[in-house]
């Protein structure tokens, strides 16, 4: 799992590469929370372009981030979501809590 961060205004962009499961969620959770606090970000955006697998552990991880971002008055979103990842997002109902955008540009503009 590789995790990269970019800051655009008060939105933290998280680019994930690899597979999201119970094992990798530990690292994602810790790293994202640390960067989110350190950079005093408000919104959180996940780039899913290079996620080639996600199970329900990823849903738990996203729900947890949703809570902490909501407390800070921010919004959370996803972009470049594959049809496979979309299936578990819609199955869990979490897609009603966070928007999915078709591109990075669209996501950034929506949260600006």
């Amino acid at each position: 799992m590789s995790i990269d961060f970019t800051m655009v205004d008060r939105t933290l962009l998280v680019t994930l590469e690899g597979e999201i499961d119970h094992h990798t969620c530990v690292e994602i959770r810790q790293t994202v929370d640390r960067e989110y606090q350190k950079r005093r970000a408000k919104n959180l955006l996940f780039d899913f372009a290079n996620i080639n697998f996600m199970d329900s552990s990823g849903i738990g991880m996203l729900m947890g981030r949703y809570r902490s971002v909501a407390i800070c008055g921010g919004e959370i979103g996803l972009y470049n979501v594959s049809p496979e990842a979309w299936r578990i997002l819609s199955l869990s109902g979490i897609h009603k809590l966070m928007k999915t955008y078709s591109s990075k540009q669209e996501a950034i503009e929506a949260l600006a």
Partner: peptide, 9 residues
């Protein structure tokens, strides 16, 4: 942070 969706999936 568990979603409780294992069996549902």
């Amino acid at each position: 942070e568990r979603a409780g969706l294992g069996f549902t999936v």
